[in-house]
Amino acid sequence: MTTSPARSPRLPLIATLVLAVAGVVLLTAPNAPSRPATSAAPGAVVSTSVVSATARSSRSPRTGAPASVMASNASTQSASASARPPHGEGVAGDAAIQTSLEDAWPADLAADDEHTLLAAGRGLLRAEATGTGRANWPALFGDPGQAIAPAFATARFRIQAAIARRDGSPDKAVVHLVWAGTDRGGTYTDRRITDWHFTRTSTKGASTWTPQPRT
């Protein structure tokens, strides 16, 4: 004959307590219906923290300028750089080089002075590079018969752009030239740069721009 194990008297008591607590909770819970979640309507106010973050991200970390301004400046610089033609562009690219020079160094000389200086600077560069016209400046090039042979062929020499500007004083100026040419070895190179410096001298009320020896 077998006997069933005795049941613990604590199990019914625990179950009764659990049911009693559950009933109390259900009776005391609020009866207000839950509200469904709604999405923000168009035009709703955005969190101020989001606005602040957006404002911070739209400004330069160094200057505090709006990103749109920084982008505009960057695009202007990019356009200026792209205005310069690539090497080997030929005569078609000379106008872009001239414009780039004029944009970089605004005019600061009287029109007559600028015209005189440009003519002299072009002539001096041609004389130095090809030998043509050296007799016009004996103080700079010496006796044409004993001068050093020109390094560039006249036929392939071309001045691509030139500007004349003050050189730190109203009585000093510099002619900045960009040019192309083929040397005696047959190598063609464009966008070469040469500067000729001048000083203004006055004689009997007339002023003259005198070129200075290149060092």
Score class of each variant (00 low, 15 high):
I14H: 10
D143L: 02
G90C: 03
D103C: 01
P144W: 14
V178K: 07
T208A: 14
G64R: 10
F157I: 05
F152P: 04
A32N: 11
T201I: 13
A147C: 05
Q212E: 14
T199N: 08
R126H: 02
V174F: 01
R184E: 09
L17D: 10
V25R: 13
T3L: 15
R192T: 03
A83T: 07
L117P: 01
A65W: 09
P66M: 06
P86L: 12
P42H: 04
G145I: 03
S60V: 03
D167Y: 14
T28I: 12
P211S: 05
A120K: 06
P86C: 06
K172L: 12
G123M: 00
W196F: 09
E102N: 11
A149P: 05
A37V: 15
S75L: 15
R200H: 06
A104T: 13
A22F: 10
D112F: 02
T130G: 02
D167H: 15
G185P: 00
A74R: 12
A120N: 08
S49E: 12
D94C: 05
I163V: 07
S4H: 09
A6F: 04
L109W: 03
P30G: 04
L27T: 12
H115P: 00
S49A: 14
A104E: 13
V46Y: 10
L140A: 00
P170C: 11
L26V: 13
A81V: 11
S72M: 10
F198N: 12
G142H: 00
Q98V: 01
Q146R: 14
R122H: 08
G43I: 07
A95W: 02
S78D: 15
G123W: 01
G168H: 06
T130Q: 03
A104S: 13
R7E: 12
S60E: 04
S57R: 14
S60G: 08
V178G: 05
I163E: 00
A6E: 13
G121T: 03
A173W: 01
T16V: 11
A83I: 05
S68E: 12
A6Y: 01
G23S: 02
G121E: 00
N31Y: 11
V25K: 07
P86F: 06
P12Q: 08
A74G: 09
A162Q: 04
